[in-house]
Amino acid sequence: MSAAGTSPRSASIHRLVRANNAVWAAMYYDELVDTDGYQLTYMADADAGYYNCAQAVSRSGPDVLAAVEAFYAARGLPPAVYVDPESAPGLRVQLAAAGYAEIPGEAENCHLLDLRGPAPDSAPPEGALRLPVERVRAVRLAGPDDPLFPAFIDVDGTSNELPDAVRRKLAQNLRARRLPGVEVHCFLALVDGVPVSSRVVGFCDGCALYAEGGTLPAYRRLGLYAFLMLHGLAFARGRGARFAFQTAATSAHSNPAALKLGFQRVCTRSYWRRSLV
């Protein structure tokens, strides 16, 4: 049990992953293929494998792998699959037999926080700070026309080291893309009026999905990541979200930060890829 009182099986991993991918489709993906047995994600000019892979694979068989391989072959990419505890039985064996190899550097943790109970009495957003509270302000942007929107893209792109092509795609999609049943809200933390930390809170299927957390290097280790995350959680509770969910590379600093904020690591997804050769 986590500090929030949720068990790892209190929410379906695949349901959460599917909701998460819907939010990522609003920000990044060029294509999201959604079937009963799996999802396929695609983004051109991606700088990491997790943008392009099969996810939430709940059934296996030659037809599934054939569909995955045909989809990515048509886009000039090697086929890849995320495997998790809810994946179809025997999927790992099938992937290995078909020439796929596990890529440890692409594994990612899934973190879950149950929001259905009362909010904790301790640790208000200001309690996470190692700066005088009067110097810090959290802002939720009104949308892509907000005067702070360019600053959000700059802070997020810089702190997360996004390539220019990926940064442009994020800005374009946040400005223009609207998907049914999906909301995306951008937050900034300002220190002395200067934007220095970013956070996205998306909503889909009753869940709050967290992405794009980052702080400019000169302002790290001041509690701004937690400060903005706690504001996002308060916002999600106010919107009636049942769960908060986020994914992170296994090496990311956001993993211990999430645990300190009450999230529970519910699984690690392994990434399997087949060479084009």
Score class of each variant (00 low, 15 high):
Ser7Leu: 15
Ala11Val: 15
Ile13Tyr: 06
Ala19Val: 02
Trp24Tyr: 14
Tyr28Phe: 10
Asp34Gly: 02
Ala46Phe: 01
Ala48Ser: 14
Cys53Lys: 10
Asp63Lys: 07
Leu65His: 03
Ala66Gln: 05
Val68Lys: 00
Glu69Ala: 11
Tyr72Pro: 05
Tyr72Ser: 11
Ala74Leu: 09
Pro78Tyr: 04
Pro79Gly: 07
Val81Asp: 00
Val81Asn: 01
Tyr82Cys: 13
Val83Cys: 12
Ser87Ala: 15
Ser87Met: 11
Gln94Glu: 14
Ala98Tyr: 00
Tyr100Arg: 01
Ala101Tyr: 02
Ala101Lys: 13
Gly105Cys: 09
Ala107Glu: 14
Glu108Lys: 12
Glu108Ile: 11
Glu108Asn: 15
His111Ser: 14
Leu113Thr: 12
Leu113His: 09
Pro118Ile: 07
Pro120Tyr: 12
Pro120Leu: 10
Arg137Ser: 05
Ala138Met: 08
Ala138Val: 12
Asp145Gly: 00
Pro147Ser: 01
Phe149Cys: 03
Asp156Thr: 06
Thr158Asp: 09
Asn160Trp: 04
Asn160Lys: 07
Glu161Gly: 02
Leu162Ile: 01
Pro163Trp: 02
Val166Gly: 05
Leu170Pro: 01
Arg175Leu: 01
Arg178Val: 10
Pro180Lys: 11
Leu188Lys: 01
Val191Met: 05
Asp192Leu: 11
Ala208Lys: 05
Glu212Val: 07
Thr215Arg: 02
Arg220Thr: 14
Leu222Gly: 11
Leu230Asn: 13
Gly232Cys: 09
Gly238Gln: 05
Arg239His: 14
Gly240Ser: 07
Gly240Met: 08
Thr247Ala: 14
Ala248Glu: 06
Ala249Ser: 15
Ala249Lys: 04
Ser251Val: 15
Asn255Pro: 06
Gly262Tyr: 13
Arg269Ile: 12
